[in-house]
Write a protein that binds this DNA or RNA. Structure first.
Lengths: 240, 240
DNA sequence: AATTATTTGTCCGTATGTATG
DNA sequence: CCATACATACGGACAAATAAT
């Protein structure tokens, strides 16, 4: 957070996402916000412009600035996504995210099997070798795992796919750092735990891409995400 | 577009997306932009704040406002998505979008088969009946088709999924209106053409959801999107 | 390493636009 | 049609950060 308005955006944005400002509610007018937060109207207006671009509010002359309903929110904005994940009340949002991943990541793997250059394949292979060395080491695994999935993703050559999955992973990682650490069984990597079984799940993906078997890569990546989903579901069963 | 800064955002945003402003380029400083577009610095600053929230630019003191690389863009912002689709140079972006749909829409259909209430099922049924009446009528088909897929989507009960697919469809529809009309074989609906064969493809999805067969709903929706993809690919083969 | 120049960031007084009652 | 209340827009001044010298 560099400047005042970015700070304000975080502060107000969180209050909206967590429901401290209710949907349909009118925010205090610019002058009052300026008073409340001790900043100029300029800063307030720029903040509101940003929140408006995120789909969280809409300003109308004379009527004031209103909090928009959830369907209008720009969920894929990294800030919005992170705030939603931080919010304790949205725990099952993690499951929704996983459903999205279940859709996208297998497709990305299939595309990688189709489009990867030899150089791409080398990168994926390197990352997989690092995974092999990282059994039992949570930190090293998380790092190699990141590179493994990153290299597959890049080989999909679909910019929108790359951007979407990366956004999703960033949000998962940052929310893990902030709020999910407390859950003891939640893995450091957004994919899996550093075990032999997990390595095998990755091996199948790796091998499928190497032989350019799109359908197999699709299925094996789906297996992996399904595993992530079941970890999540177990956590909920045991901790609530 | 109501106010000056929103107009400016469209103007500048399009120039960035279409490459008129190159990645890494420094925009004219606020005072110059103010001069160029005949608006106050306030308006310029608010516009830049908005573009910054879209991930298109980043302002730095003394260094000016720089155009960010494509990987930083907020692709799921409806404006950004629309501008990209409008850009003639990004024609194969439609294929990338379809790859995303190939991932998400079958998952949404499977979730609907799992979670739909009886009321949801009624809505889906109503829309399907309207589809039956709309064979051969492009406009009526497009409308019923919209409601059919919308009712399935709502029954997925995954807010992020709903928002994402709706954003995607909005962008497709609006880009069809603006730039794709010229392509004669591109259907009015983002899903299919009003033919008997298309109706059957929809029927299979409808029936699978009715009997709550998640896997079948998944497969049949995948068939439908695959069909859309092949329409697109044919268009490219024939028109370029 | 210190200074300067340049650009964004911030503040505020004022005026206009727009929808409501 | 007028009065009200809010966002929108303008512009001059100064502060703060940092690239360049």
């Amino acid at each position: 957070m560099k400047n005042r308005s970015e700070q304000l955006v975080s502060e107000l944005g969180r209050k909206i996402v967590t429901g401290e400002f209710i949907v349909g509610e009118i925010l205090p007018k610019v002058e009052e916000l300026s008073e409340i937060y001790g900043v100029s109207r300029t800063v307030i207006r720029e903040s509101l412009r940003s929140l408006s671009t995120m789909g969280l509010v809409r300003s109308n002359q004379r009527a004031g600035t209103v909090v928009l309903q959830r369907s209008e929110w720009q969920w894929w904005n990294l800030d919005v996504l992170t705030w939603v994940l931080e919010d304790e009340n949205n725990r099952d949002f993690l499951l929704h995210l996983t459903e999205i991943r279940m859709g996208l990541e297998p497709v990305a793997a299939a595309l990688a099997a189709k489009r990867a250059t030899n150089q791409d394949l080398d990168k994926i292979g390197d990352a997989f070798n690092r995974l092999k060395q990282a059994i039992g080491d949570e930190k090293a695994w998380a790092s190699a795992d990141y590179d493994f999935h990153e290299s597959i993703l890049q080989a999909s050559y679909n910019d929108l796919m790359i951007n979407t999955i990366k956004t999703l992973r960033k949000a998962l990682v940052s929310s893990r750092e902030k709020t999910l650490k407390a859950i003891k069984d939640y893995p450091e990597s957004p994919y899996d735990t550093p075990t032999i079984e997990a390595l095998d799940r990755h091996r199948f993906i790796y091998e499928a891409i190497m032989v350019r078997d799109e359908d197999l890569a699709y299925l094996k990546m789906k297996d992996l995400i399904r595993r992530v989903k079941s970890i999540l579901e177990n956590i909920y069963d045991n901790h609530s």
